[in-house]
Nucleic acid binder design. Structure first.
Lengths: 352, 352
DNA sequence: CTGAAAGCGCTTACAG
DNA sequence: CTGAAAGCGCTTACAG
């Protein structure tokens, strides 16, 4: 292949240029080209320079599919269920950005209601991903084991799972529930309610447990609980309408997450004409952007999403490097962010 | 390989079972197995049954990486820039779900500020994606051509691009701007402002052009324009603060999108103590979930996102099937959704 | 450090 | 319809 024909080729032909052409251009073997492009391949500086020059000239890019056949695919699977909660947009942004920093890319699987997690995992395994991050839905333990058997590390993001044989990164939901209870009682509210969601059981139960346990510890007896259908504005709104037309008349509500709290606050204000925080105190969880808006100005239990994402991705790549590493259960602390949806504390409570 | 050892294998061994093992189990050639799994491979019903039985028994899943080496990767690249605007979470949900219906999967690339679109496209090409969907950022024409040369169809989502050699699916932003102008004037506002964003030029200019052109057509002269930095609540808030402390005193604002409009509305209400819609009328674009909330109750120009996604994905797969298909410029209509952030129309205006 | 060779798991003309 | 064989683009022991 002459140099002039290559130049013409580079401009016009649609075919991909491969390692073979680079080898010819650099006058080395294809093994040498492969090693030059691999950090751990032994290769003299001179050869590497020749190879890079040739690759640059030809516009060569390695085919990751071919590489993945013998080596790693550089693909990380992300399983997502919840596309209602806006928190997941920034989580996704952080996840993909961090994965890209590791020179890998994200295969995003939408585990919608019509698709089971099992199906999703099987599908993702067909791409031989290097690792898997599961958000917003807990993965059955058998599936985690199945991944492990295939040497595919799994990190579960944001969800507890008692005894899953996988690394889990979440925040301390029980403590978060306790904080919410303290914040409400400290502000003088006496009849708190908890609004959870039927989906994603572990999160709901942990936050609820922390909340109720703490209420009881502090001698509060007039509490109620109810549930919305999903993590959405509408669910929060509807659940709140039910709650405030029931016999229980709470004076404050702890919502499972911020987006439900926003829906709930709107119901309280516009459906029942009550004032926040004077008549009703409200606390959410997450600290999504909207929580800091003037309209909602929501007191909330902040989840350290950025830290959680970094921790999760770091742990995943550690597992990818060292398959023998034991699964860890990493729980990050959450923080109370006090805003205008709760009355000023009358006790000596913590403020952010 | 005896049947009993296979059973033991299935439970314990970590290695993937491949086409070779299925062929042995089914007592056919590996070509036959391959054809059985390919819709267009000629294969007798009997052989297919044997193959499927063997595959089922062994838990065989084709390796998509290997398949992609000679055939298609079943991977669709999604390029995303904007993780601020919540509209993109549901767009992403629809995109991934629709792509999965086509038995393909989504490689999501985060084109953050530190990463150029060019880099992102080069990276994505290393995975030999079957097609590419570009959202929330316009792709330089040279890049589109580069993809075309590699036989990788590109669909641009949500953005005009005068003469890109790619299929474009967007909505009629100029008409949207005109609708907003009509809605404001019909409601009796006389000093409208437009708040755009410095990013994503084509969208901003089209909506602004439609808006201003229509204002002028109807004899309105007292209009102003300004810009936020990005598509976010904070940008809308800040731009509005500047706007309302400048010499121009608008009585209504058309925002580039809903999330900016929400920020703007909060600034108007809480920073300047003005009433919406009595003192100031507000219109956004998108119709995100938040627009329908009681707190914002935002009049908006709805983009038909679900239709746009379906159209974009359908068009992409048509191009993948038939490489010779000419690029199309598909523009879907948008609709005015009248809510409480504008006064009731005093003219005979359209209402949703 | 370097090259020839085998192999990753699949597809696809090519004969039969 | 079916099988043997070559090939997709890369990696990785194995000799040298």
């Amino acid at each position: 292949m002459s140099s002039s024909s290559q130049t013409a080729d580079k401009l016009s032909r649609p075919v991909n240029i491969t390692i073979t052409e680079v080898a010819a251009e650099a006058e080395v073997s294809i093994s040498a080209v492969s090693r030059a492009f691999n950090p751990n391949g032994s290769c003299s500086a001179k050869t590497r320079a020749k190879v890079f020059a040739a690759a640059e000239k030809l516009g060569y890019k390695p085919n990751r599919l071919a590489r993945g056949l013998k080596s790693s695919s550089s693909l990380i699977g992300i399983l997502m269920t919840d596309f209602e909660n806006p928190a997941y947009l920034s989580i996704l942004s952080d996840l993909t950005a961090t994965i890209q920093e590791h020179n890998c890319h994200s295969l995003l699987i939408n585990v919608g209601p019509q698709k089971s997690v099992t199906e999703a995992v099987e599908l993702i395994m067909e791409y031989h991903v290097d690792g898997l991050i599961v958000t917003s839905s807990s993965l059955p333990d058998e599936l985690v084991s199945a991944c492990q058997r295939r040497n595919t590390p799994v990190v579960i993001f944001g969800h507890h799972s008692r005894n899953a044989p996988a690394t889990i990164v979440s925040c301390d939901n029980v403590a978060g529930g306790r904080m919410a209870a303290d914040a409400l009682l400290d502000a003088g509210y006496t009849r708190p309610a908890f609004v959870g969601a039927t989906t994603s059981a572990p999160i709901t139960t942990d936050r609820q447990r922390g909340f109720i346990t703490r209420l009881i510890e502090r001698g509060c007896t007039e509490w109620t609980t109810t549930e919305g259908n999903q993590h959405s504005y509408d669910s929060g709104y509807e659940a709140t309408c039910k709650l405030f037309t029931s016999h229980a008349k709470p004076d404050s509500v702890f919502y499972l997450d911020d987006i439900m709290a926003c829906g709930g606050m709107d119901a309280i204000r516009y459906e029942f004409g009550l004032k926040v925080p004077e008549d009703i105190g409200i606390i959410g969880v997450d600290d999504i952007r909207l929580a800091a808006s003037r309209a909602y100005d929501l007191t909330t239990i902040r989840q350290p999403f950025t830290d959680m994402v970094n921790t999760a991705v770091t742990a995943l790549f550690e597992h990818i490097q060292d398959a023998s590493m034991a699964p860890q259960n990493i729980i990050l602390p959450c923080t109370l962010i006090t805003r205008g949806s709760t009355r000023a504390s009358i006790a000596g409570a913590q403020t952010a």
